[in-house]
Design a protein around this nucleic acid. Structure first.
Lengths: 140, 140
DNA sequence: CCTCTATGCCTTGCAGTTCTAGGTATGGAA
DNA sequence: TTCCATACCTAGAACTGCAAGGCATAGAGG
């Protein structure tokens, strides 16, 4: 699926900060990680990521150090800063706001997708409880 | 809360299409509706909306007609087209993809927010089943 | 030893977009 | 008469993003 560039742009910084909040990482690996997390749907080029990393570093949200991989290659490792953690929290709040708005708007009618997980616990030999946690996305 | 312009840009077209999918509307009212839907968090200026409407019309996703309100004012009413409905569905699929990715990434640890609804049904005088449908947002 | 692939990092320029700041007009209320 | 809310529109300065290029090397396979 082709994603609009606006959506890619909007999710870029939050994704990078999230990945670096997990653990220190470097450019090439971040691209791979995003590919993984998105199941191949979000495909960044390195030419997209590097300038973003530089911008985030310039604004103090992440910090870098040069290192050498076990393989002998040189890598620039990035780590999130406290300021970056704050920004990440702000991004999350903003996404919640916008997603809540879209969800409200889309709550019109006609279910488009339901994603969920069902679990089942036997209370006794004759009675079981089935629980489902689900998110509904509806078409207007 | 201040929203990043990327996030505003990414949600703009989907929001307009969604609103017009509900019913025909016009510029001024769309701005108000977005304010309403977002609980005041998404504040568009008219200078932001009009060019967007023109772009959507140019690309055939919406169509306009001039009309006169009960109040006597002239208004340009917009309606969604079939092509627009298709685009809207595409936007929804894209948002699902990106939101799913972010949710996966944020599923690390430390619950940040849980929103949900709980319902309870008595199966008999001694047994009740409580169900909860919830969405979890976690900080990494 | 040579070549190819994967890994790894970086920058520039110009085509494109975008929002700020401005303009126009009018119904109704004070 | 004035002011506010309603209602629409656009020019162009300012920004920006990304395609395309460049550089370097480890390891595999021949």
């Amino acid at each position: 699926m082709k994603l609009t560039k606006d959506l890619v742009a909007a999710s870029a910084a939050p994704l990078v900060l999230t990945i670096l909040a997990e653990s220190e990482s470097y450019g090439y690996a971040i691209v791979k990680r995003v590919d993984e997390l998105s199941d191949g749907e979000i495909a960044w080029t390195d030419g997209f990521l590097y300038p973003l990393l530089h911008r985030l570093e310039d604004s103090g949200q992440i910090a870098s150090r040069w290192g050498v991989a076990e393989t002998g290659r040189r890598r620039r490792y990035y780590a999130i800063t406290d300021s970056g953690r704050g920004e990440l929290a702000a991004h999350q709040a903003q996404w919640r706001t916008v997603v809540a708005t879209l969800r409200t708007a889309w709550a019109g009618s006609g279910a488009a997708l339901r994603v969920g997980v069902t679990s089942r616990i036997a209370v006794s030999s004759r009675i079981a409880v089935s629980s489902r946690v689900a998110a509904d996305w509806r078409l207007a």
